[in-house]
Design a protein around this nucleic acid. Structure first.
Lengths: 210, 210
DNA sequence: TATTAATATGACCCGAGTGGTCAATATAGT
DNA sequence: ACTATATTGACCACTCGGGTCATATTAATA
């Protein structure tokens, strides 16, 4: 049975986002149990009473976030062109869409990542369901339609893919650390990422491929 | 002024390690403020009274750990052969030594990493000092004596180094996630890492270099 | 504008958990 | 046997947790 959270949804958008971001941040940082609703209402600039008016309790708030984030991810996947055959162009697109999400919900990915270490029994089943759904709908699409013939054949493909992904992850993290605030990520990040793509292409594509 | 913690140091080694690891784990996971001394004594299998006998209070315990970890890192650096000119051999060695430390203090690196996000005012100055010292003594040595002529010259060297490092970091993390417990890391990890080195060498070294 | 309905507020509740203490106990040394 | 040292965990004062609710503020209706 699906809960509708009508109280919350009839709020102005900006307030909704403030609450979502505050909650994502707090849960991501501290996990379900140690996350403080006091901290959330302070960050979201609403009163305690309001929060518990929109969501009956902490657990409902958390479950709402799970669902919300799942939808956001779903949306990301829908925006990507899964027919693009060039591997680098594909992850570039994925990066771009993720970047847009990041601007709106800076803590969504941290929240998602933290889920894997979550051990609160009350929310574990919901988390496992989310994971299952994401693997099914996500990895299913995964790298379909990619033109692997562009790649050199003398390397283990899985390892090459890992190197490329870890490079992007490492770059993104290092880039974030360079900034003072998580909020002021600019478009420059993509230019710099492209320079890494350029190197990796020349390493892993056959000569002459672009 | 340096505190000696004589009470603690006259304990049997095994007990010292149990306490250190329990404390590192708790602080790494929860940060200074939210770390619980109750949790630490439970994990270390000592009584509350004992902990506060060895260390007068939470802050002293934390400062002790800072100092201890700094020394461990220092030791790592001393074990590495800084004359080895081959870049990959060098970080392989570093990995090996880190691996040894990891077996003894599984949470030391998590603890160190968590320090950068620590915001407890009571311990901030000590953390900053540690960071300063580590950058000075560590990055100083850094990549000295490396034979850079082995590398292709048509790539930006800094970016290449980043790719290699991020690959190793990504690999290590992925490897850890594959394991059930942080404790059962085996030597196989090095063999698998070597396979990545092989790929990266063929990418970034000039033809014919090994 | 007066009245009602809907929202938003934060002081307050009680239970859980905090860092830290200390009289009582167990162990070791002589 | 006696003393000195090491260890224990019940206990304390206090903070902070999720959640409530009477009151205050705003919006809607007339």
């Amino acid at each position: 049975m699906k809960i509708i959270y009508s109280k919350f949804h009839s709020l102005e958008n900006e307030k909704q986002e403030r609450i979502i971001n505050a909650a994502l941040k707090e849960f991501a940082k501290n996990g379900y149990h140690k996350a403080s609703t006091n901290e959330i209402v302070k960050e979201a600039e609403i009163s305690k009473g309001s929060l518990f008016n929109y969501f009956n309790n902490k657990k409902e708030l958390f479950l709402f976030l799970l669902d919300y984030v799942a939808n956001v991810i779903e949306q990301i996947y829908d925006e990507v062109n899964w027919n693009e055959p060039d591997f680098f162009e594909r992850i570039r697109q994925l990066g771009l869409v993720k970047f847009k999400v990041y601007k709106k919900f800076p803590y969504a990915f941290n929240f998602l990542k933290a889920l894997s270490h979550e051990d609160a029994a009350e929310v574990k089943p919901a988390i496992n369901k989310l994971k299952k759904d994401m693997v099914e709908s996500g990895l299913e699409r995964g790298y379909q339609n990619i033109d692997w013939t562009k790649f050199r054949e003398d390397f283990d493909r899985e390892k090459v893919i890992n190197i490329i992904n870890w490079t992007m992850l490492g770059f993104a993290e290092e880039y974030m650390n360079r900034l003072d605030s998580i909020e002021d990520v600019g478009m420059e990040i993509l230019h710099e990422a492209d320079e890494y793509f350029e190197i990796l292409k020349r390493c892993f594509y056959k000569k002459g491929e672009r």
